[in-house]
Structures are given as structure tokens and as C-alpha cells.
């Protein structure tokens, strides 16, 4: 889009903006946020219960807990869903407050990268605890 003082494009501002919008995937972000929030309802309850359960357990206790495949699977599901939901939420904040396009894109992609890495690191830690103790 051109600067408002540059009369190079003979189209209205609205005309220039049309087509830059949803491209048929406008509700994807909203929908993913809702689906992950639904999944997080039971997962979060289970997570809080686990934290209370593991109080004072020590490293061996945590490893023993993760050795149960159901527990390690739920923990990895919790990590994946939490960081996906977090990434979507932080993206919504960035879109609201960062105006400049390049900086907006850079911030969103950085958040995606960090969330992905944290989810991976947590999942690999769970697998290590589950398999090697």
C-alpha cells in the first residue's frame, strides 16, 4: 500500500485493502484458540492435580511418575496444547499492539519459534524421564 501523500494508485483505501483479509481462513486463529482452550480444560485440571501429587516427590519421584505411559502421554499433550494456545494468545496481543508490518511479522515468528522450542524441550525431557528415568 502507498503512503497517503503519494497519489500513485487510483484506488480508494478500501479498494486497496480488499482481498488482503481473511482469504477464506479468517476464523482459523479463533477456531484453533477455542479448540485448544477446550482441550486445556481437562488437561489443566489434571496438571494441577499432578503438581499437588508430586509435591516433595524429588527427582526420582518425578521420573517414577513419568514412567507411566499414560502420564507421559498426557504431559506431552499438555505441553503441545499449552504452547499452541500460548502462541495463539501472544499473537493476538502482538497484532493488537504492534503496527509496523515487518516488526509485527518478526515478533510473531519469534514467538512461534520460542513456543515450538519450549514444547519440544519439555516433551524430550518427559521422554527421557519416562524411558531412562
Amino acid at each position: 500500500m502507498t503512503h497517503p501523500t503519494a497519489p500513485s494508485v487510483m484506488r480508494s483505501k478500501l479498494g486497496q485493502a480488499r482481498g488482503l483479509g481473511s482469504a477464506k481462513s479468517g476464523i482459523h486463529h479463533w477456531w484453533a484458540q477455542k479448540v485448544t482452550s477446550f482441550a486445556l480444560l481437562p488437561l489443566t485440571l489434571w496438571f494441577i492435580w499432578s503438581c499437588i501429587h508430586l509435591r516433595g516427590a524429588g527427582r526420582a519421584g518425578v521420573a517414577h511418575y513419568m514412567a507411566n505411559p499414560l502420564v507421559s502421554a498426557l504431559t506431552i499433550a499438555l505441553l503441545a496444547t499449552t504452547f499452541h494456545h500460548l502462541q495463539l494468545g501472544l499473537e493476538a496481543v502482538v497484532v493488537d499492539y504492534v503496527r509496523e508490518e515487518k516488526r509485527k511479522l518478526a515478533t510473531i515468528l519469534t514467538i512461534k519459534a520460542i513456543c515450538t522450542l519450549f514444547a519440544l524441550a519439555g516433551s524430550i525431557a518427559v521422554l527421557k524421564l519416562a524411558i531412562t528415568g
Binding site: 518425578v62 505441553l79 499449552t82 501472544l90 519450549f118
Partner: peptide, 30 residues
């Protein structure tokens, strides 16, 4: 809702820190 959501990013990081520390060493975990 938004402020607690952003704050929960810190909680998510702490959750991973806990798991990675538990998977790493007694020193890191303790």
C-alpha cells in the same frame, strides 16, 4: 484475562524448566 494469559507464559516456561531440570541432574533439580 489478557494480563493473566501473558503471565501464564511464565508459568509455561517454569513447567518446561521443571521437566528439563528433572531430566538433567540432581543439582539442576534441587
Amino acid at each position: 484475562h489478557r494480563i493473566t494469559g501473558v503471565a501464564l507464559a511464565g508459568g509455561a516456561v517454569l513447567m518446561v524448566w521443571f521437566l528439563v531440570a528433572a531430566a538433567s541432574s540432581d543439582a539442576a533439580f534441587n
